[in-house]
């Protein structure tokens, strides 16, 4: 470390010591962390967590991200290879983190936060657990971010954006008889159960997850966890979904139409899909993994609602919400191509 950096660090330490009192937070793992606010230099692991920082205008306070986030460099013009602080939330590079000289490291609860806290403790770098992928914590997470980065106004805007659509969904779906949805992962015959963000998205969109009755704890271990639960194709037909959604691998860079068409080829000819009411009615879609998950999956929920109850949501364009999330909050041009449906 060069002397200039030492001076800078010293100056920052002094300024933060004077400008703000230490505040105590209880994080997502139940740990108590004392932080000096506002955070000026943060290293954040997990893409959703970095997205939130950018959404509230704190991207310039993020000095390091993980390589998994940077997999889509077009989506992150503000970061370069030099800002990478490790492969992902389980393999942080502590030396790289120390060299980035952050005043906070944020990890999700499926990261190695204990190890990180221990290794970074001698350097006086605190570790805070914030689990941005947990969609049910959206409001709490964003509000916390607002405090951390002194962007409470922008954080409130993001909460409003989220609430606006969630409230709209709740209001219009009041008293409506719920239809049944089968959501399939990128892998065939793999679905989601309660506890998964995708399950929450179906519920928010006014659907009933046909595998929503499965309590993962009572199931044989070989079947999977809440995010990837393997089902028998016969069971899918037996449970008669009105809508079938299949996730497609995706990123910010536009997912080419040909890829969608290719996936559609094998998807639309599957007997277990055609054998459902959804298949018979042509109510089956492919959806881009990346975009459906935008802003804690609120955009995906809108899309589900529109597919299920087109009359109730005739005036709503899910792509508009998506566009708002990308352009207003992420500050990037929206490139479209969120969903796909071909001929049966």
């Amino acid at each position: 470390m060069k002397p200039r950096h030492v001076l800078l660090a010293l100056a920052l330490a002094i300024s933060s010591a004077f400008s703000a009192a230490a505040e105590t937070f209880t994080d997502d793992a139940g740990r108590t962390v004392e932080l000096k606010l506002p955070i000026e230099r943060a290293v954040i692991f997990n893409r959703y967590a970095v997205e939130f920082a950018r959404a509230i205008g704190a991207a310039d306070k993020v000095v390091g991200v993980d390589a998994s986030t940077m997999r889509d460099p077009q989506y992150w013009p503000e970061f370069s290879e030099e800002d990478i602080a490790g492969q992902g939330q389980t393999q942080p590079n502590y030396e790289a983190i120390v060299a980035l000289n952050p005043d906070l490291v944020i990890l999700p609860r499926n990261g190695v936060y204990e190890e990180a806290a221990r290794q970074l403790e001698p350097f006086g770098i605190p570790v805070l657990v914030v689990t941005a992928w947990d969609t049910l914590q959206h409001v709490d997470n964003v509000t916390l971010y607002g405090k951390l980065f002194d962007q409470e106004k922008r954080a409130a805007d993001l909460v409003d954006f989220y609430r606006k659509y969630m409230d709209l969904l709740a209001e219009r779906l009041k008293g409506v008889e719920r239809k049944r949805v089968y959501l399939e992962e990128v892998r065939d015959h793999v679905t989601v159960t309660p506890g998964s963000g995708w399950h929450a998205m179906i519920e928010a969109g006014g659907g009933i997850n046909i595998f929503g009755d499965i309590d993962i704890k009572n199931e044989p271990t070989s079947c999977g966890n809440e995010n990837s639960f393997t089902v028998d194709p016969e069971e899918v037909i037996a449970r008669a979904p009105d809508l079938v959604i299949k996730l497609q691998p995706g990123s910010y860079a536009t997912f080419p139409k040909e890829k969608f068409a290719e996936a559609w080829q094998s998807f639309s000819t599957r007997q277990d899909i055609l054998g459902t009411p959804a298949g018979a009615a042509g109510n089956a879609y492919l959806i881009n993994y990346y975009l459906a998950g935008g802003s804690s999956k609120v955009t995906g929920a809108l899309q589900v609602a529109k597919w299920l109850y087109p009359d109730l949501f005739a005036d709503i364009e899910p792509e508009d919400a998506m566009k708002e999330w990308i352009e207003t909050f992420q500050g990037l041009p929206f490139q479209g191509a969120m969903t796909y449906q071909g001929a049966f």
Binding site: T90, R109, N110, G111, I216, K217, T221, N225, N227
Partner: peptide, 11 residues
Amino acid sequence: VQFVATQEQLA
């Protein structure tokens, strides 16, 4: 064991 693990335990 990994199948019944939560995201946190799985990691």
